[in-house]
């Protein structure tokens, strides 16, 4: 036999030996079996898979720190309960009591390690009450409670400028609400509604002039809630005596849609369907008043169509215009 053939036979025998020895080991590993040298028996084990966001966290199994960082697999665990703790510097730790079953993998692959808030940075000045982001997500608007003014700043808080201050005759606002297009801000107290038009060009200093919408009989007709219509142009006003709509512009008139009999009406406005849900006591067929929940569809029963709005804004008639 030639030298090469001898080497070949040797290689073949070696390969066969590695296959015969290695295969049971690999299959035991694949099936989760572990050889227990004390009992000289194979025991079926389970495993835990831990994956974190961010990666590279240390894992403690009980008190023992494991060598590998996340993502990692803890193999050959005898069935039972294990305490697993995941730690990462400057992040809150994660811990759980995990029940390991034989032949099964317990996956924890959606662990988020939240950062400790050591890097919190203040980006507004004064006493910020509320804030929102501009449509382009590059500007933060916030209301400063101390002076009732709206400020604008970049996302780093490095260029904070006053946008507009609320009218002086406005009581501390009950609530404020941003229009769906994030271009207008409406605030109201019990008697008045103030509006800041953020899409206006502003005065020479770049400030946006606020204006107050006048409600007829506002002294006695307390405002309960104000909602934006989805067109960002109309406001739906719920007061103790009625439900009304008005355009969000100076000197607009009020259109009364329904009278309310209950002074503590609750209301919810579904912006996606422009539907107002409210509680009230309306007269039934028997002449009695029963408290119920009502629904008022503002998308079809009023002349508040988007097409009409577009017509006003652009001056052309939409092709698919439908008659109201």
């Amino acid at each position: 036999m030639h030298g090469e053939q001898k080497i070949r036979v040797l290689l073949f025998c070696l390969s066969l030996a590695v296959f015969l020895v290695g295969l049971p080991v690999i299959l035991c590993f694949a099936l989760g079996y572990k050889f227990d040298p004390r009992s000289l028996k194979f025991t079926k084990t389970g495993l835990i898979f831990v994956k974190t966001q961010p990666l590279g966290a240390s894992v403690y199994l009980g008190e023992k720190l494991l060598d590998e960082k996340t993502p990692l697999t803890i193999n050959e665990l005898l069935p039972g309960k294990y305490h697993v703790r995941v730690v990462l510097k400057n992040h809150y730790p994660w811990a759980a009591e995990i029940n390991v079953e034989k032949g099964k993998v317990t996956r924890f692959d959606k662990i988020i390690l939240f950062p400790v808030l050591s890097s919190v940075k203040q980006i507004s000045q004064g006493r910020s009450a509320s804030f929102w982001l501009s449509e382009k997500k590059d500007t933060v608007y916030y209301i400063d409670q101390s002076d009732n003014c709206v400020y604008r700043t970049d996302l780093q808080g490095e260029s904070s400028v006053e946008v507009s201050c609320l009218p002086q005759n406005l009581e501390p606002p009950v609530k404020w609400s941003l229009s769906p297009d994030k271009q207008k801000l409406v605030l109201f107290d019990r008697y008045k509604i103030a509006l800041i038009n953020l899409d206006a060009e502003g005065d020479t200093s770049g400030r946006y002039r606020p204006f107050v919408l006048n409600l007829p009989g506002s002294d006695s007709n307390n405002i309960i809630d104000v909602f934006w219509h989805s067109d960002s142009y109309h406001l739906v006003i719920v007061s103790v005596s009625d439900i009304a709509v008005m355009e969000a512009r100076p000197n607009s008139s009020v259109l009364k849609l329904a009278s309310l009999n209950k002074t503590d009406t609750c209301a919810y406005y579904n912006l996606s369907s422009d539907t107002l849900y409210f509680s009230d006591a309306q007269a039934a067929g028997d002449g009695n008043f029963y408290e119920n929940i009502y629904k008022l569809d503002l998308n079809t029963k009023l002349f508040l169509f988007r097409d009409l709005i577009k017509l006003r804004q652009t001056g052309y008639e939409p092709k698919d215009k439908k008659s109201p």
């Binding site: 090469e4 070949r8 390969s15 590695v18 296959f19 290695g22 690999i26 099936l31």
Partner: peptide, 25 residues
């Protein structure tokens, strides 16, 4: 099926090592 695939894969690794060595020879 998984067991068969693992057996085949392992066989194929060993075979590849063996044949690659023959190739070098």
């Amino acid at each position: 099926c998984a067991i068969l695939i693992i057996v085949f894969d392992f066989y194929w690794i060993i075979r590849t090592i063996y044949l690659s060595t023959l190739l070098f020879l």
